[in-house]
Simulated assay, not measured.
Amino acid sequence: MIGERNVSRRSFVKKSVVATGLTGGVLGSTQSVAADSPQTLFIEGQGDYIAVVNDPNATGRNLESGDSIRSDDDKTIVEGSVNGDVDKIDFDGWVTTLNLDGNLDAIVDGTDDAPNGDLVVEGSNSSYAFIVGYSAEKTSDCESTESVSNDANVAGKLDFSDTDTFSVIGALEDASTFSSDANVTFRYKD
């Protein structure tokens, strides 16, 4: 995705040009309109993940027998792993929580909603990057190792049991970790 992988991705370039960043909470100040069309979350790389979307009717494609998908009244939780393959989750709404455990990319195609509030990134000894739909700003708990470019592209590093919070407008469109030892959670703050 961003920075450390040197991977060219059509979606990253598209989002970077358009923008010139999952975990069971919903934004406290969400001002959103229902999605015009379904989105798809693509998860690829090597590792385990948990994705939560605010659509109880979300469906999964290319999920293996060890992966699980379960719905609540207001959300769907998908737990799985990828090892060079791509898991796909189709949903309306947005990703509210995403835990990436390993060297993974999570890319949303078709994001229409525009939530706003705080996006919290939690973990230890891991580098990360994400893109949100419109804008991201560092808050006071971010260190100098976190940066925002093109208004909506964020890169950072988590130290031991670290939390970085960003004030964002727009749905999480892309998130990456860069090590097989990485365990990073991206979530909208309750």
Rank of each mutant, 00 (worst) to 15 (best):
E4Q: 08
E4H: 11
N6T: 05
N6S: 09
N6I: 08
V7W: 14
V7R: 15
S8H: 08
R10W: 14
R10Y: 14
R10G: 03
S11H: 05
V13P: 06
K14I: 04
V17S: 10
V17R: 15
V18G: 08
V18Y: 12
V18D: 08
A19T: 14
T20M: 12
T20Y: 14
T20Q: 14
T23L: 13
G24I: 09
V26R: 02
G28F: 14
S29V: 05
T30Q: 13
T30E: 14
Q31D: 10
S32G: 07
P38A: 09
P38Q: 10
Q39V: 02
L41S: 00
G45M: 00
G47H: 01
G47K: 00
G47Y: 01
D48I: 02
Y49R: 01
V52F: 02
V52W: 00
V52L: 11
V53Q: 01
V53P: 00
D55M: 02
N57W: 04
T59L: 12
G60W: 00
G60K: 00
N62P: 03
N62C: 07
L63R: 01
L63F: 13
E64Q: 09
R70L: 05
R70F: 11
D73M: 03
D74I: 04
D74L: 10
D74R: 12
K75C: 06
I77P: 05
I77L: 15
I77D: 10
E79P: 03
E79D: 04
G80I: 03
S81F: 10
V82A: 04
K88M: 13
I89S: 02
I89T: 03
D90S: 07
F91H: 01
V95M: 07
T97L: 10
L98G: 00
N103Y: 13
L104I: 12
A106V: 04
I107T: 13
V108Q: 00
G110E: 07
T111C: 06
T111Q: 12
N116D: 09
N116T: 06
G117A: 02
G117L: 00
L119M: 08
V120G: 01
E122M: 12
G123D: 06
A129Y: 14
A129H: 10
F130V: 07
F130D: 08
I131C: 05
G133M: 07
S135F: 08
A136P: 04
E137S: 11
K138Q: 09
K138N: 03
S140V: 12
S140E: 15
C142H: 07
S144H: 11
E146T: 06
E146I: 04
E146F: 09
V148T: 05
S149F: 15
D151T: 05
A152P: 15
N153A: 03
A155C: 11
A155L: 15
G156Y: 01
K157W: 13
L158R: 02
D159H: 07
F160A: 04
F160E: 14
S161P: 02
D164W: 12
D164R: 15
T165M: 13
V168I: 15
I169K: 15
G170T: 04
L172M: 11
L172I: 09
E173R: 12
S176H: 08
F178C: 05
S179I: 05
S180D: 14
A182W: 05
T185H: 09
F186R: 04
Y188I: 09
K189P: 02
D190F: 13
D190S: 07
